[in-house]
Nucleic acid binder design. Structure first.
Lengths: 337, 337
DNA sequence: CCCGCGATTGGGAGCGCTCCCAAAACCTCG
DNA sequence: CGAGGTTTTGGGAGCGCTCCCAATCGCGGG
């Protein structure tokens, strides 16, 4: 592995000039540029990142933090797609991504490591949990960061999110419009902001149609298939006409419970989800759900973060990405008309 | 963020002594150690990684390369669990992980970046495809690396894998022992080594029982749910008694095709898979499959790699992890006894 | 033909750490 | 009490790059 200095010698110019060439500094004459580039290519020269970082103070590396204490949740395709979105946006901008799956036992130590080690120029945090310590730590540090999913209490930070409340309201309203009146919900964990927001949307949808809330029809889940399954079983005795399940993996579990109980969807119970994971299009029956642009959440977070790093500004970014109601068969058809 | 030098001044010792303290060098007297540590903690000092890397030549960062040209495949829980295994082993050893999802269009450029940028001390590669360029490139570079999954042609490299041939043979043999004779297979992509190996195991199982191979019963899939679905549909006309599906996601697809065709499992067609993804325990019926220790594949790869980095030795590591036949309901019960 | 100015180029001074060697401090024991 | 050894400690010399400033080059106009 040659060094800058060697490339300089080899091409008969100074260290500085080579540095200019590899950094696309315009203050280089065309012949010099070509001469140096030829040598660079010939020796397949790659600048040493550590040296560059030390000298320049930045690394072109972003951290991606997924505080999934619950490894069960990490099986959710959501994270996979998110990682993909982050990764591809980083590639496109010539950044690398450092992945931190924050296991709870390491969390404290880890946060310090993340913030202080100078390894990353910024971090993307997939925030989920309400009392997340990392966000405060991030605020204290001066490291640029983007949250994926808004934070419940700290609002003066940058984030990208979907409108969970409105989207949940939309899909529940769809159910109501189809004529169902006894609509239950399996919520997400209520210590997760998206869990709370989707629940909120459910409440709003019912309320705005003057339907009073029946707490018997509300069961808290945990976003997992298993959680959906058990929640649905508990709901069975209440014989709801329709159920808004706050995540597709839970909806899969709910379907399983329903099938086991010999009930058919949507004839006996209509079901809708939230997320539109790949499996939802292929379930039996295909699931009506809200499509989140998960990949885009990741890539937008990265793009915004990079912009923030390279052109620091004071103003806050609160980006809301659109969702889409995807109507399939699990919600049944209009009962009224 | 204080520097080493500042901590040294603050604690009244030299730069070198502080360096020794933070690196746990035994050549430090106890009082000095305590004195320095107090200051380190008080100022929450974290050594600058870039500087440390530049000076020491290593980074305590491992690269994880997943050359999933096919993003479809990345939805497979396999990778998620693999990433988790790698990540947690890294955490445990105080290493960080740099994630590279190698999208095909970036591949060439990326490989160079990975190998030369000096950002990582070693890489773990989830190798899948037969004609993978990265492995050769890795061999040329002097970077330590571990493959997850053996390479079809390059054998003098370190890898950790399961015995796909033997495991496939085991599960197909199980099918044969149950009394099925007309056993089909939906293979993985045959440009993936695991696809080939599992197919091989299928052939061996039949052959060793003197059953001659019927090419009509062999359909190539691609490890995805979709692929399994379409492959099963093609297989339907051959009316197999049982099918060995080379991956669980494909088995899910095959089940879907079977259900659609109104056939029941295992009464009309028995089905077995390979992988034991979480969903397999909950499918209808639960899937008989081979359990791979995916998490462990990741963590063993990391541990071995770290050992390789820290204690370089010449000898090759070819680690084979055990699999387990998990019998559930999809394979039916003994037809003979 | 010389001055002045913009476009190029060169070189010094670090960035914050590790590593090595030598100096200092401390023991042990004859 | 001092030689000789063993710990500890200190400081210089980089690691390979960027950044800044000064030096050089080239060229048009007076």
């Amino acid at each position: 592995m040659p060094t800058l200095e060697e490339i300089a010698k080899l091409s008969g110019v100074s260290r500085s000039t080579v540095s200019r060439v590899i950094n696309n500094d315009p203050h280089v004459s065309d012949p010099t540029y070509k001469k140096v580039m030829a040598v660079v290519r010939e020796f397949n020269y790659q600048p040493n990142i550590a040296a560059r970082s030390l000298a320049s103070g930045h690394t072109r590396v972003l951290g991606l933090v997924i505080p999934t204490g619950v490894s069960k949740l990490f099986t959710d395709p959501y994270f996979q797609i998110l990682i993909q979105g982050v990764s591809s946006a980083c590639n496109a901008h010539d950044y690398s991504v450092m992945l931190w799956l924050a296991e709870p036992e390491y969390e404290r130590r880890m946060i310090k490591k993340i913030l202080n080690n100078g390894l990353v120029d910024g971090v993307v945090v997939s925030s989920m949990v309400v009392d997340d310590v990392i966000v405060e730590a991030l605020v204290e540090s001066e490291l640029p960061f983007m949250l994926i999913g808004r934070h419940p209490t700290v609002t003066d930070v940058n984030y990208v999110d979907v409108d969970n409340v409105a989207s949940a309201k939309e899909i529940v309203t769809h159910l109501l419009r189809l004529g169902y009146t006894r609509v239950a919900t399996i919520t997400g964990p209520l210590n997760a902001i998206s869990g709370v927001d989707r629940y909120e949307g459910y409440i709003e949808a019912l309320s705005s149609r003057g339907i009073k809330i029946d707490t018997g029809l509300i069961v808290e889940g945990d976003f997992s298939e298993e959680g959906g399954y058990y929640a649905m079983r508990r709901l069975l005795s209440q014989s709801p006409q329709a159920v808004f399940v706050a995540s597709d993996p839970m909806a899969m579990g709910a379907m399983r419970a329903l099938h086991e109980a010999g009930l058919s969807i949507p004839e006996d119970v209509a079901l809708v989800g939230f997320d539109d994971i790949p499996a939802s299009a292929r379930s039996n029956p295909p699931l009506t759900t809200i499509r989140q642009p998960v990949h885009m959440l990741g890539s937008v977070a990265v793009k915004t973060l990079i912009d923030l790093i390279e052109h620091p500004v004071a103003d806050l970014h609160h980006i809301i990405l659109p969702t889409q109601l995807v109507i399939r068969e699990s919600c049944g058809v209009d009962l009224i008309s």
